[in-house]
Amino acid sequence: MPQTPLSVSHPAVRRGVNAGPWSLGWVLVVLAVLAFYPVVFRNFLTLGVTIVLFAGMATAWDVLGGWTGQLSLGHAVFVGIGAYTMALLVLRAGVAPWWGAMAGVGASVVVAAMWGAVTFRLRGPYFALASIAVAEMTRIVANNWASLTGGAEGVSLPSLPRFLGLDLFSRRVEFYIALVLLGLAVVAASWLQRSRFGYHLQAIREDEDAAMAVGINPTRDKVLAFLASAALTSLGGSLYGIFLGFFEPRGMFSLDLSVQLALMAYIGGVGTLFGPLVGAGLLVGGSEVLRIYFPGKSLFVYGLLIILVVLFAPDGLGTVVRRVRRV
């Protein structure tokens, strides 16, 4: 046994701690490839925006769900807060949409802090159930508090100021904004993969008691992860609001939307850099293919896909790709 200390550059050590620059490189490559999408598929921009936007929100979900291991089925709350805060400030106060989105982030962070502080004492399925309850209550309140949200009749965004000289309603502009958001989320995830804070979260996910024994304050760190996840999701929500141009509480705060974000991450693989992107591509792109080729059967196939993934690729399809590559 060599007595000299193992050097930091020793290959075993380098392999042992997820070398950061390496995965960051992959992130850039993937984003760069995606940047060509609007050029190649100019007739499918709407689809592209949807995929990239949902991939971004699913990656944001994964910060809490995958990296920290807290299954939230209420993230639509932040999508809704992002969209509504932005739209209401634009419509009622004449605020620019990007400042509106920032305000949405602020509101989401406040909500997440309260929500997390109260419910993070619950573990396992109980946290998931509580998140459903919070989201459903938010939806009902948003639906009924018409003086604030416009109620069930929804909100529409007929016009928006130009953003850096760009038309925010152009699908192309929306695509690149979504791509920036996805980039932010994936870079955040890749930072979690190697940073001190990221290791804290992963340790909490793996074993909360053992994490405490090495000096980690799980409640504080879980809340912080929740804040980050909420902030990113909220940004996605603001863009989603612009993308739709019209929205109502029933869609924006729906359980369906929350479940969808979680499913994308799970189908692609939670706690991985690109799992949520793979999941979003498959679910959104896949359901479009299904809509065209299996009219009326898309939800059925969607359900079947979930069952098959759980049975045969419980760690997500991303891991299947990895397995295939190893062979």
């Binding site: 598929f41 690109f274 590559r325």
Partner: peptide
Amino acid sequence: MKQMIMALALVFLVLGTAGGTS
């Protein structure tokens, strides 16, 4: 990774050929 991009590309390809059915 490569496979993933390929898979995505495949999805897009399918879409590309699937334009308006008349």
